[in-house]
Write a protein that binds this DNA or RNA. Structure first.
Length: 144
DNA sequence: GCCAACGTTGGC
DNA sequence: GCCAACGTTGGC
């Protein structure tokens, strides 16, 4: 079981909008970066990820689940771009901000802190648990 | 709104 | 296959 982080600018696509899609989930469209696409190709159904608001908010605001394997991105005019579907699992009771992530020694190697431009990132199991702890989220609920 | 970092493109 | 030019991202 791998863990991930999905980044979105909230004024383009927010976690509230994600939640509004319910259990059906939505395509995580718009990724035009090979590294990010390759991470999505390796995702399995049911794997968990964080939903991060970039630019405005700059915080981990919720947990999502992969609900469909990688498939062609319906918004791309080039078939090489693929995406997974994700659905909201739960809120982060207390959003974990980038500042806090950067200040936490256990998260110093987190991709969010070291490569801020990558829009889909791997997260280690240890990092997943630290973020849950700092956000006041019972990991059992996140893993549901 | 600026700019640094990074990825991609295309000419050679 | 190198590298300069360009575009985009995202923190500040």
């Amino acid at each position: 079981m791998a863990f991930w982080l999905f980044k979105s600018e909230p004024f383009k696509w927010s976690f509230d909008e994600q939640k509004a899609c319910g259990a059906a989930g939505t395509e995580w469209t718009g990724v035009r970066n090979y590294q990010a696409r390759n991470f999505m190709r390796s995702m399995q159904i049911g794997e968990r990820g964080f939903f991060y608001h970039s630019n405005e908010g700059k915080a981990v605001v919720g947990v999502v689940e992969v609900s469909a394997l990688a498939h062609p991105d319906s918004t791309a005019d080039d078939p090489r771009w693929e995406c997974v579907d994700i659905r909201a699992v739960c809120d982060m009771p207390s959003p974990v901000s980038l500042d806090v992530v950067k200040a936490e020694p256990r998260l110093k190697d987190m991709v969010l802190a070291t490569n801020s431009r990558l829009s889909v990132q791997p997260v280690t199991e240890a990092e997943f648990h630290v973020i849950c702890e700092m956000g006041g989220l019972d990991p059992a609920k996140a893993l549901g």
